[in-house]
Structure formats: C-alpha cells, structure tokens
Computed example of a mutant assay.
Amino acid sequence: MTVFLKIDADRCMGHGRCYSVAEGLLTDDEEGFVAQRGQVLEIPADRLADAEAAADACPEGAIRVVAAADA
C-alpha cells in the first residue's frame, strides 16, 4: 500500500515539531515553517514511523498520513 503525507499550508503555523521528529523526511524553510507545506509526499515504507510521528507532533493537525486513495 502506498502512503502519503499531506501538509496543509493554511493550517501550518511553523512550530517546527514535525521536522524535528522526522529529520531527513521533512525540512524547514527560512521562516521556520516546514518546507514541504502545501505538498503531498509519497512516503517510503521504511519512513512510515517518521511520517506518523510528524503528524502526531503537529498541534494544528496540519499533517496527515493518508492512503493512496485519499491523497
């Protein structure tokens, strides 16, 4: 099953918790926001735990792990 990480640009407030717990999967931009905001990223199977941790760390719920059909 293909899994994606959806990052809602409107909900992201730049706390930085997501890229702190998912180094190498997510990065920050010059303003402290997740650089991938507004994107849908395909997640390799070996990084699923990191993607879930990033989603769980977001206080705004701006990040969701979704199956291919929901991406």
Rank of each mutant, 00 (worst) to 15 (best):
A69V: 12
A49P: 02
I7N: 03
T2D: 13
A35S: 15
V65E: 03
P44D: 13
A51F: 09
S20T: 14
E42P: 10
K6P: 03
K6Y: 08
R37G: 08
D8C: 11
G32D: 08
V34Q: 01
G14T: 07
A67G: 09
I43W: 00
D46M: 10
P44W: 04
L41E: 08
D46K: 05
R47Q: 15
R64C: 05
V34S: 08
C58E: 01
V3Y: 01
G14F: 03
D70M: 10
A35L: 15
E30N: 06
S20V: 13
C18E: 03
G16C: 14
P44F: 02
D46H: 10
A49Y: 03
S20N: 13
M13I: 15
A54K: 00
A69I: 14
E23S: 10
R17A: 15
D8L: 07
Y19W: 14
E60F: 04
G14E: 13
V21Y: 02
E52W: 03
A55F: 01
Q36I: 12
C12E: 06
A45F: 01
P59E: 01
I7E: 02
Q36T: 08
C58F: 01
E60Q: 12
F4H: 10
C12D: 02
R64A: 13
D8T: 11
G14S: 09
D50R: 01
I43D: 08
V21S: 04
I43H: 02
V34G: 00
A57I: 04
L41I: 15
L48W: 02
A9E: 12
G16D: 07
P59I: 06
A53Y: 02
I7R: 04
D10R: 14
G14I: 06
D50F: 04
A54C: 06
E52A: 06
A67R: 13
V65L: 13
L26V: 03
T27N: 11
D70K: 14
G14P: 09
D50S: 12
H15V: 07
L5S: 03
L41H: 02
T27V: 05
A68M: 12
T27I: 04
E30G: 03
H15R: 06
G61P: 06
S20H: 09
A62L: 07
D29T: 08
E31Y: 10
I63H: 00
C12Q: 01
L25Q: 04
V34D: 04
A67Q: 06
A68S: 12
A54H: 00
A9K: 14
M1K: 05
V3D: 05
A49N: 07
F33N: 05
C18D: 03
Q36N: 10
I7G: 00
H15S: 14
V40Q: 15
V21T: 09
Q36W: 07
L26R: 00
R11E: 08
G38M: 15
A62D: 07
E30Q: 11
E31Q: 08
A51P: 07
D10T: 11
Q39A: 13
L25W: 09
R64F: 02
V21R: 04
S20R: 10
P44V: 02
A49E: 13
L48A: 04
A35H: 09
K6C: 11
L48Y: 06
